[in-house]
Every structure is written in C-alpha cells, then in structure tokens.
Simulated assay, not measured.
Amino acid sequence: MGSALAATLPSKAVLSGTCCPGVVWAPDSRSLMFLDGPPVRSATGIYSVPADGGTVTRRFSSVAYFSPKLRWAVRPGTGENTTLERLSDGRKFTLPTRGADVTWTGSETRLAYTRSDTSGNFDRRTNRVFVSDVFAAPKQVATLNGGGISGWIGDSTLLLNGKLNASARDRDLFTMDTRTGSRRTLRSALSFRGLSLSTDGSRVVYYIAFDSAARNGLWIQNTAGGAAKRLDSFGSYRWRDASRLLLIPLVPNGSPHVLREYNARTGAWRTLGDLGDQVRQGDWSVSPDGRKISYLSAKDGNVRVVSLPE
C-alpha cells in the first residue's frame, strides 16, 4: 500500500453557498455543470462555472438527462415513451423505456436500457435489456433477474450483471456482443456493487460483500477475461483513465480524506495527498482528461477543484 502520509493538495472553491451537490464535468474538462434555479438564479436550468472559478452562466434552459458528450437530451415522459433530442439539429425520436435511464456508447450512436418488472422480490424480477441505434427501433438482447446494465465496451459489447435463472443464488458478471449474442462470464458472486468501467472499457472495478471470505472485497478485472485482482484497500473510487483508479480510503475517524491512486498495469499504489477536508456523502468526480477532481466540501458545502499530480 505504501505510506498514507502526504502533503495537503491545494484546492479552490468554484461554487459556494451549499447550492450545488451533484456537479458534473463538461466533456472538455474546462467547466462544471449543475442544476440550479430560484432563489439563487433567475430561472431553473443547467448552469456552468469554469473549472478555475469565475462567472456562472446558464448553459441549458431546459432540464433533462444529457448524454456524457452533451450531444443528446433525454426527457422521460409520463407514460412509456422517452424523447431523445439531438442537440446539434433538434431532431427527435422516442423509445418505450418506461422512464428508465439510457446508457450510451462512447460514440453516442447506440444506447441501451432496461425495462424491469415493477413488483416482486428484486432478486427475482425480470429485467429485459434493449439496445437501439439512434433513430431506430429497439431490440431486446437479454433477459436477467436482479441485475442490469453496467456499461458499454466499445460500440457493440455490453457489460451486464444478473441471474440468468431467477432461482439461482449467484449473479454473473458477463460481457455480451449485442450483434452476435455471444457471452463471456467474468465472475460469479452473490452480488456485484459499485460496478464501474475504466474510461476505455478495458477494466472493471467492483466490490463484493456478504459473500464468502474468498469473494468479499474490492476487485479489478480485465473485461476481456482472466482472473480478478483483489485490492488491499476499500473506500470511494473513481477511474482517472484507462488504467489508473483513484480511491479515498474509508477512515471513519474524522480526519481529512486522503486521495490514493492504483495503477492497474503495474499493481502499484501511490498517495497523491490529502484534501485537508472531507468529501460530503461521496460527492466527487474526475474530469474527463484525468487532470482534476471536484468535490463537495463537508467543511463548508462549497464545491472545490483540485489539480492532480501527474
């Protein structure tokens, strides 16, 4: 693990006044976006602030779920249909998602969503996975129990988790080629929590709890297959890039949160520094270029930005 001792990382408050939990980075890493409205702002909308602080401006006047690259606005309706609008030209289409979230490929030309039963034990509920090209009809590609979509690997392969048999004890974590239907099982366990794909989809991190001692813990695994590696730490984590995982270890003693980095290629840990503060309720995120993090300060409720060591 290495030493947890390190200097405090300088940070800058870019939003103040406890206004803005859940900020997200813009695709170019130059600004942060957040939902706000009266009485602080004149109107409800999606606002933006530069990553180094400055003037707050309204970026979108309507409220929607926006795709990661901000190419699409997703607006669930009151019934089955969700409307998807391409922001470059305003062209729209609908999908019968029943309000479910959609998961985009990196190119944002395809998407996936799950339609789930609304009653019954979660472990046994049927979840139907659909994929669609934009402006095309959806196609069901999988049926799971007690699971769902964990992300796209490229433009054709989904990472899924769930039971293929409702009466089974364990869930499978597996990849599926949505064009051919071929599957590769990566791992089986009672449940998979905190599933997160690396920025290029080559690795997945997750933790297992309430299972056997041999299975429990925080794990990293290649999505192409092979054995998973258990990490000798636990806490809140985010991918920095394709191979580096940032982690704030769980230390329930009230001390400032420490930021650590694990290199999945070399298997080495390093401590980047402490925040001189704590992150409130796990509210932190990494810029798309991997150079900064933002976090909601537990000390004063401000949104602060930290430049990461290279």
Rank of each mutant, 00 (worst) to 15 (best):
D211L: 08
G217R: 13
Y207H: 09
R215G: 12
L231C: 04
Y207F: 14
A224V: 11
A227D: 12
Y206V: 08
R215M: 15
I208R: 04
A213I: 09
F234R: 04
F210R: 13
D211P: 03
A242S: 04
A224Q: 12
F210K: 14
R238H: 05
G226R: 01
Q221C: 10
W219E: 09
A242G: 00
F234H: 00
I208H: 04
S243N: 08
R238C: 01
S236P: 01
R230C: 05
A242V: 00
G225C: 11
A209D: 14
G235L: 11
S233H: 10
G235T: 09
F210T: 12
A214V: 10
G235N: 08
R230A: 09
D211R: 03
R215V: 14
L218R: 00
A228H: 09
V205S: 06
D232C: 13
Y206S: 11
I208L: 09
L231W: 02
W239Y: 03
W219Q: 09
D232N: 15
S233P: 06
S236F: 06
F210G: 09
A227L: 05
G217Q: 12
I220P: 05
G235A: 11
R238G: 02
S212I: 11
A214Y: 06
L218V: 02
Y207C: 05
A228G: 14
G225M: 12
T223P: 02
W219I: 10
A209F: 10
S236H: 07
F234Y: 04
D232Q: 15
R238M: 07
W219F: 12
T223H: 03
A228M: 12
W219Y: 14
T223C: 03
S233D: 15
D211E: 04
T223F: 01
R240G: 02
I220K: 08
A209Y: 13
L231T: 06
K229G: 07
K229L: 13
N216A: 15
F234E: 01
F234D: 02
F234I: 03
F210Y: 15
G235R: 05
A213D: 14
R238D: 00
S233I: 11
Y207S: 10
S233M: 13
Y237L: 06
